[in-house]
Design a protein around this nucleic acid. Sequence first.
DNA 1: TTTTCATATCATGATATTGTGATATGTTAA
DNA 2: TTAACATATCACAATATCATGATATGAAAA
Lengths: 124, 124
Amino acid sequence: MKKNNLENENDDMCEVFKSHEDVVDRVKGRIPEESEFAELSEFFKIFGNPTRLKIISLLSIEDLCVCDICDALDLNQTTVSNQLRILRANNIVKYQKEGKMARYSLTDLHIEMIYKVGLEHILE
Amino acid sequence: MKKNNLENENDDMCEVFKSHEDVVDRVKGRIPEESEFAELSEFFKIFGNPTRLKIISLLSIEDLCVCDICDALDLNQTTVSNQLRILRANNIVKYQKEGKMARYSLTDLHIEMIYKVGLEHILE
DNA sequence: TTTTCATATCATGATATTGTGATATGTTAA
DNA sequence: TTAACATATCACAATATCATGATATGAAAA
């Protein structure tokens, strides 16, 4: 039994979880699907770790082999390799084998953009 | 005792964690400080949860009260309120009290940009 | 007052993520 | 072959995060 009378346009009451039905209906139809939110959150989760961010930061300057990343960040090889695996699995870095070495680079410009807008945000 | 001879410019060996010293020295000087990576990863961590992304997605369409968010996302009030607290603490949403209600909105355009670039990335 | 409602905080068990030691793989040099 | 090296994978203890029930706060209505 909902109110049909519109005698007050600025009625801001939510009346026990019934909320503003018109507003709710409008926005509900304009957001992505469940599965896309799941995928997107997995993607952003990758940026939520300082080690991975450092790797992304380095690779936004130039392509590097695993060994150089370890050295530049003063991290052990297992740690870097593990994080690179996660970055690869999430399509954030790619690599090219060169003999014994693996040269890593960022997958595309989206990655660099997100990293830089984030950095801008926290520095402002 | 490092090699000084440059007889081979394309020498790609890393010689046991000594890596490519010139490259490493160059990039090391161009990345942010430890504390900034910590802060930035905390910031991005917020985007790494589907519930919070949904809230961000809704608020990128229009400002909403807690009740509307619960209803639009079919989530219980505690969950939404908890995530809003995290979003507030991380400067991702702000709110305005209007009587009993709290009307939430995104803090600034960076948030919307990051959300949208991420969505673009996973949809391509 | 007291009641009702919108929102916030606390506490917790379930689950996920972290860095790292041990070890494996695969490539090149000897 | 064997040895040395660059990188990858496995396993796990320590830690962090999640959703949610119980409860608190604070504003407006009665």
